[in-house]
Design a protein around this nucleic acid. Structure first.
Lengths: 172, 172
DNA sequence: CACAATCCGGAGCTAAGATTCCGTTTGTGA
DNA sequence: TCACAAACGGAATCTTAGCTCCGGATTGTG
C-alpha cells in the first residue's frame, strides 16, 4: 500500500498500526491481510527506500564529471532523506528493526555506487582507498544529524565537511 | 546508583526497570525510591555521561599542540563512547528521550570545547569557521556509526575522514 | 527485649499497542 | 434476484513494560 508510505515517512516505525490503517482509509484487518506483521510492513517500506537510493545513484551515473557524480549521489541522497524518517532509517540501517529480504536491494545499490566510486578514484579526484563501506558509514553519520536534530539543515554543512575529507589530498 | 550505569551502558534506554533493579541487586521499589520515573533515571545517566565528556575535554586542554588537543577530544570521546550505549545516546542527543536538566552539563562541555576550538583556529590548523555545533554534529555522526553498526571499529576511519575535512585547507 | 519508625521487595495494576477473529459488506455467476 | 465466496472492519484479546502499594524485614531507641 503506497499510501502507508507517507505515514512511514513522517512517523517512522513508531507509527501505529491503527494510524496506518486509518491513514490508508482501511481497517486494521486489511493492513494485516497485506502484511502479516508490522515488521513485514516496515521491511517493505525500507526495501522501497533502498530502491529509491539505487535510483538516485543510477541517475548520477549519467553525470560526466567523476567527482560531481559521486557528490551528486551523496547530496541527492541527503535531499531525499531530509524530512523522510523512512529514508533515514533505511540509510542508518537501524538495528532496532530486523531487516531481512533487503539484501538484494542493498546489493544493487552497492553495485552502482561502487562503480561511481571506482570512476572517481580512477580519475584521481577522491582518496584512492575510498570504499562503498566508507560511503555508507559517512552517509549514516550525516543522516543521523537529521534524525537526531530534526528540522535544521546543518546536514549540508556536515556533508561539506565530510566531502573535503573524502576528496583526494591534491584537491584538499 | 552507580551500579545501574553498567546496564545502561550495555543496553541503553531499552533496559527494563526490573533488569536494572535485578542488576543492582535491589527491588524495583527501591529503584523508584531513588528515581521517580524511568526517564529521571535515564536523565541522570545521561548527565553523568556528559560530565564524562567534559572531563575528557578538560584533560585535552593540557595538550600543548592546538590541533592535537582538538583531535584528542574527538578521539578520546570516540573511545569513551565505543561500547557504551549510554555514552552513545548522550552524544547523539536522541530525541527519544526528553533530556531536561542537562543544560548545565552541556554548557560546561561547550565552554571547554569552544576554548579548544578557538585555540586551534587561532593557530590556523583548522578551518576558521569550525564551531562547537560542527563538533557536536560530526561526533554525532561518528557515534551513529558505532550505534548502528555495533561491534566494528570503522568509526576510527570515519573520524579520520572527517578530521581531514576539518583541518585547515593548507594542511589538507 | 519491646516497640516504633523506616526501608525494602516484588506481586499485581494499568496503559499502550500489536495481532486475532468473526460478523458484515461487496462482488460474481447462474 | 439469490447463493456463495472473497475482502473488510474494527472490537476484543494478548503481551509487554512502567509503576504503585502493602506486608514483611531492618534498624534505632528506651
Amino acid at each position: 500500500m503506497a499510501s502507508g508510505r507517507e505515514l512511514f515517512a513522517s512517523h517512522g516505525p513508531q507509527a501505529q498500526m491503527d494510524e496506518i490503517a486509518a491513514h490508508a482509509g482501511v481497517g486494521i484487518g486489511t493492513v494485516y491481510r497485506h502484511f502479516p506483521t508490522k515488521e513485514a510492513l516496515l521491511t517493505a517500506m525500507v526495501r522501497d527506500r533502498f530502491q529509491g537510493f539505487a535510483e538516485i545513484a543510477r541517475r548520477a551515473e549519467d553525470i560526466a564529471d567523476p567527482l560531481e557524480a559521486l557528490e551528486s549521489v551523496m547530496r541527492n541522497s541527503g535531499e531525499a532523506v531530509e524530512g523522510d524518517v523512512g529514508f533515514q532509517l533505511a540509510m542508518m540501517g537501524s538495528d532496532e528493526l530486523e531487516w531481512e529480504g533487503i539484501e538484494e536491494e542493498k546489493a544493487a545499490l552497492a553495485e552502482v555506487v561502487t562503480r561511481i566510486i571506482s570512476r572517481a578514484i580512477a580519475a584521481g579526484v577522491v582518496r584512492d582507498d575510498y570504499t562503498f563501506e566508507d560511503f555508507g558509514m559517512v552517509m549514516c553519520g550525516i543522516t543521523s544529524t537529521m534524525y537526531y536534530k530534526p528540522g535544521n539543515s546543518d546536514w549540508r554543512r556536515h556533508l561539506e565537511l565530510v566531502l573535503r575529507g573524502v576528496r583526494a589530498p591534491a584537491i584538499g
